[in-house]
Write a protein that binds this DNA or RNA. Structure first.
Length: 313
RNA sequence: GGCUCGAUAGCUCAGUUGGUAGAGCAGCGGAUUGAAAAUCCGCGUGUCGCUGGUUCGAUCCCGGCUCGAGCCA
């Protein structure tokens, strides 16, 4: 068997083994999406391309930051070479100044996925943003979109006041909310204030509906030993910094939009401002990326419908 | 060569007026339905550099040694 030539990506483990247990449901009319999940730097893109090759697929991004234009290097978006062979969707479709959230992502992705299916191709949905993926797989709860003005107001209010207000408006939600987590308290309160209804009731309705959704889903969860993942993160960070990440962030300017929160952007901005040296910048990106990868693993562990997949190392 | 200071968790350090020790960071675990690469929560046994001595008891006091930093030659 001839090995197909592969782009020389030092991060790919060379000749990615072919998944053996792809779901085989030829009875289904529209090709069902295949999800490729896993922590950052685990090789999702390479596996997705491999699956797309075999299944007549097209790749759909499910990564919150690869959505943005001008963030390709820092967000480790698939390269031009990768994208040449297989059609890739939803990469670099947002302007750096655009805001994004899981609902917006869902509205973006759903039509793209349906369009791919209408051409009898398999959507291969690839990305590491757990919440965005969850919207795709389980649908949105009937909750209002975030409101920037209200958030600005809530952000300016002491947490203790937010908690007291939530306990007053929706005691049931207050019990379920991590009250030391300002983000979650704000969001719960925002829902109540925006809708005039109880967040707890709206959420209950959704949870009942989604209970059995996972049955029809299939996808893969890439699992790598922690040490190997850490090595890959270090290597990738080095490559990013040596191949344009700094120029990319400089070109973003100082806009404090969504993508200012991306790992790499924060650290490189500090470096460009002269606050930290190059070694510290590198080290901070590596550490932040490792921590992110760990959070992703925690998230995906709960998605038990995913089939674990260990690449041959 | 002499003197001074330091040596405690993976790292940076605190501390014990002698009763075997604790912070930050890292790491590990967890939560997470419209900011998610975000946000938040939980987890601290380590020959207290080595070696003698004093003591009921030494990481702490005393001697020697090793290593590091600084000063004087």
């Amino acid at each position: 068997m001839a090995k197909s030539p592969r782009p020389s990506d030092p991060l790919s483990s060379g000749g990615t083994p072919v998944p053996v247990n792809l779901p085989d449901d030829k009875s289904v009319v529209a090709p069902q999406p295949i999800y490729v999940c896993g922590p950052t730097a685990s090789g999702k893109s390479a596996l997705a391309v491999e699956i797309a090759r075999q299944r007549n697929g097209e790749i759909v991004n499910a990564d919150a930051y690869q959505l943005y234009r001008g963030l390709e290097i820092v967000s480790a978006a698939p390269s031009k070479d990768d994208r040449a062979e297989i059609p890739h969707h939803l990469y670099g479709v947002l302007d750096p100044d655009d805001s994004a959230d899981a609902g917006k992502y869902l509205r973006l992705a759903q039509p793209v996925i349906e369009e791919i299916q209408s051409r009898d191709k398999t959507p291969v949905i690839t990305g590491g943003s757990g919440l965005y993926l969850k919207f795709l797989t389980h649908g949105p709860a009937p909750l209002p979109q975030g409101d920037p003005d209200m958030r600005a107001e809530l952000d300016a209010t002491p947490l203790s006041e937010l908690v007291a207000k939530l306990q007053e408006l929706d005691p049931a939600e207050a019990v379920r909310t991590a009250l030391h987590n300002r983000r979650y308290v704000s969001r719960a309160l925002e829902i109540c204030l925006l809708t005039g209804q109880r967040a707890s009731e709206l959420r209950d309705r959704w949870e009942e509906k989604t209970r059995e959704v996972a049955a029809g889903l299939h996808g893969f969860l890439i699992q790598l030993p922690r040490q190997i993942l850490h090595d890959r993160i270090a290597t990738r960070t080095r490559m990013m910094l040596d191949h344009g990440a700094i120029d990319e962030v400089a070109a973003l300017g100082n806009a404090s939009t969504n993508c200012a929160k991306a790992i790499g952007v924060r650290e490189i901005r500090d470096f460009l401002a002269g606050e930290i040296n190059a070694a510290t910048c590198y080290e901070r990106i590596v550490v932040a990326t490792r921590q992110y990868a760990k959070r992703q693993e925690t998230w995906f562990r709960r998605e038990t419908w995913l089939t674990p997949w260990q690449p041959g190392i």
